[in-house]
Amino acid sequence: MKIISFLLSCILNLIFIGSVFLSISSNNLRFHKRIIYNVQLVNLQKVKKIVKSEQTKKKIVQKTYTKIQTSPKSVSKPEAIAVTKKISPKKTSKKKKKIENTKKFTQKDIRKLLAQIKQQTDSVAKENELKEQALKEIKAAVQRGADKGSASLGEVYAQICKAKIQSNWRFPVLRFGEHLVAIVKIEFDAEGHIVRADIEKTSGNSLFDASCLKAIQATKQLPPPPSALQERIIFITFDSEELQ
């Protein structure tokens, strides 16, 4: 009896863990990484394909990815925003026409893509509903238990900060292929107010360094950090070159 009950518990345990993991895949910020691949690999590859064919930057994929992570219940929307938004402020150096083409092309394709994603997310969402309760518990557990700060949660937060600061960053690259990199250390309080920003590593170009600090000062306020985040410091690397 004991043995049977133990075996049964083992099987049940496995099934439960499995199902929980599945549900996490769309909602949980930490675990989905591995599992979301299974669900969304096709989509991601498609995004990549478009990106490649249109010579836009990898960044889109990165950003899209992180956006999916941040708001799992409406995967489709942020993705669209992420992709289209990324393309429109692309450097003017490219032929205008080309940019327009790119826009049209990706938007059209993204619409298709979105339909696919939506289908998938709908099914995932159903599962979610069923397991929402369980998830909430797990999330709370994560928050409670993550006394050292949740890694992926922090990553997501860093990405949000990055987007905010980048939108305020202006710097004219006056030399072809000039590559400047500076690292800035930012300290912020529990509300997300930036209290201090220092050049950690200079680019060697004072105008460039100033532009980084300027971007941070113009940003002023970051979103409130997750409570799990213990060390309220972020190191931002400013790279003058867009990703190819």
Partner: peptide, 11 residues
């Protein structure tokens, strides 16, 4: 936390 910004929003 560490993050890299590739390219300014406006040149």
């Amino acid at each position: 936390l560490r993050v890299t910004i590739y390219g300014p929003a406006e040149s």
